[in-house]
Amino acid sequence: MTDATAAPLERLRARPSPGRPFGWRLSGAYGWIAPALLVALWQAGSSLGFIADTVLPSPASVVAAAWRLTRSGELASNIGVSFLRAMAGLAVGGAIGLVFGFANGLSKVSEGLSDSTLQMVRNIPHLALIPLVIVWFGIDEGAKLFLVSLGVFFPVYVNTLHGVRSVDPQLIEMAKSYGMPRAALFRRVILPGALPSIFVGLRYALGVMWLTLIVAETIAAQSGVGYMAMQAREFMMTDVVVLSILIYALLGKLADVATRLLEGFCLPWHPAYRRA
């Protein structure tokens, strides 16, 4: 193929894709350039003695700590415990949030009964309840489950409610006039219409979920990544502390990627998620 025919194709590829105001697209690999550079600088700083090991251990010693804890099995079991807590809290809080969101979006009675109460509770920072939660549940799993569920509930509730309310009333009118029964109206019009907003809620909820879990595990726990970090602090093992922080970052990223995949799968019709 000659250059003359290749050139227009190249120009087409270089064109900014619709919906992305900043011309070029970054593929996945490019996203890792900045973190990799940062780690390299950090290692150089530690090796050259600019950063004291007690303040911030070098990446190499963090990797060594990771290796050590992996061999002993501690790392896997703590990540597993934290992950399960996070998912359990997300499932419980998210499910309750979905139920209330749909109920209050669909029924005036339900909204009148519960919405103002929920909005009042929403304004209390859920982490402020930690002392009370420790009194209620001790430092059992119940405490973590309660806090994470509470934290996850509100973003899911608020965004589900908003999603149900913002379903195009013209579509609902059309469906009714075409004789769609209530169950089908919900399944084929209201649920898919609310779904993009529910996903926004899920993303917020994931952020709150990790935040709550970290706080809960550092204050009141006997296992998990947060507990591992607090234990390490007692013995000035800063490498393990940094490792814990990195693990939280990776788990957060993982949750984000999972949500993106789920969105792509559930919203194939949506112009923002349609794959080219």
Partner: peptide, 27 residues
């Protein structure tokens, strides 16, 4: 049956599934 000012198609349903909505009770 009504035809509205706007097409009012379900964006999350294929063109064919949108036409099937019109079958009403026979869907």
């Amino acid at each position: 049956r009504v035809m509205f000012q706007e097409p009012r198609l379900l964006p999350w349903a294929s063109v064919l599934a949108n036409v099937e909505v019109g079958l009403g009770a026979e869907r």
